[in-house]
């Protein structure tokens, strides 16, 4: 192939591309408003993460501020509160994987097994409703339920026990987080598993009945393997969220009495950004660190799921 032929080829390709773009120009008009939005409100803040390596000067803006290399990180890693908040995030969200992740699976299984006909829909409505309330509302309800004179303490009182400060005690904080998480979201998460169960081939169940499998056998050998793929994907996503999950929840359910055990990484970022004397480069440095760790976790969980023979998330 000679040079000139090659050039003609390239030119021809460009001309074809140009015609193709012109032919589809309306598609570009369609996506233009959305694309502009993403450029301004997603990509500018994304590149704004460079602030982690700069020192923020209000007059110069994010992109004009001078570079300082890794100086911010020297201060970040020197901060005891930062290290503790990482530890707390990991602990709290590992607990979440243990106590809040499996519950929707259980709920989906038993809702699926119950023979109730139309009242099943009412039950499902009850379970999914709290998901649509904000954490502010849920936390407000919990002050009524878990408070010193609240519902739970009234019930405890009927058995003659002393009231317990569920919201104000540091030792109850983590269990309370898992409990309220399940209260709010388990019913909604169960819907995804129920969809997966509905997708399982009915012939498998029929064959199992003929072979004399009991109901528990069918749950164990057909239903559970049938939702394994869905559970894996959700688990990978949950692991990828292990540093961030639950800011709304912790922010609204913690109080001065429990803040010692409630300052997760996101709470820490919120505090250093908006509550004390704001140092924007410092908090951006922490956010960037958090995103990188999240991504590494997501990626590793995906690899491990694939090694263990499951289907991953990232192809």
């Amino acid at each position: 192939m000679t040079v000139s032929e090659n050039e003609v080829g390239i030119k021809g390709r460009f001309a074809k591309l140009g015609r193709n773009i012109f032919k589809n120009k309306e598609c570009y008009f369609l996506i233009a408003p959305g694309v502009i939005w993403y450029a301004i409100f997603a990509y500018i803040p994304l590149f704004g993460l460079t602030l982690a390596f700069k020192t923020y000067k209000a007059k110069l803006g994010i992109f004009g501020s001078p570079w300082v290399g890794l100086e911010n990180y020297v201060y970040v890693f020197r901060d005891q509160a930062f290290m503790q908040s990482i530890f707390r995030s990991l602990q709290l969200n590992a607990g979440r994987l243990l106590f809040a992740f499996p519950f929707p699976v259980f709920l989906a299984l038993i809702i699926n097994e119950v023979r109730l006909g139309s009242s099943k829909k009412i039950l499902q409505s009850v379970f999914t409703f709290p998901h649509f309330l904000s954490w502010i509302i849920v936390a407000s309800i919990m002050t009524n339920v878990l408070g010193m004179t609240g519902l739970l303490n009234s019930l405890i009182g009927m058995f003659g026990a002393e009231p317990v400060s569920f919201l104000g005690s540091t030792s109850f904080f983590q269990p309370m987080i898992y409990l309220t998480e399940n209260w709010k979201s388990a019913g909604w998460s169960a819907i995804i598993y129920m969809a997966a169960i509905a997708g399982i081939d009915t012939e498998q169940y029929e064959a199992a009945v003929i072979d004399g499998a009991t109901r528990l056998h069918r749950i164990w050998y057909i239903t559970l393997p049938g939702i394994k793929g869905t559970a894996t994907v959700l688990f990978i996503l949950a692991v990828g969220n292990i540093m961030t999950a639950g800011f709304d929840q912790v922010f609204n359910l913690s109080n001065p009495a429990t803040i010692k055990v409630a300052e997760t990484l996101d709470m820490y970022i919120y505090r250093v950004t908006f509550q004390s004397a704001a140092d924007f480069s410092f908090s951006t440095a922490v956010s960037l660190f958090k995103s990188v760790v999240n991504f590494i976790l997501l990626f590793s969980a995906d690899r491990i799921a694939k090694i263990l023979g499951g289907s991953g998330l990232i192809s």
């Binding site: 409100f41 500018i44 803040p45 994304l46 704004g48 602030l51 970022i269 950004t273 951006t284 958090k290």
Partner: peptide, 12 residues
């Protein structure tokens, strides 16, 4: 998967 988070958004 990646976003700037709240600080760059606030400054913007």
């Amino acid at each position: 998967m990646f976003n700037g988070g709240i600080v760059p958004m606030y400054l913007l």
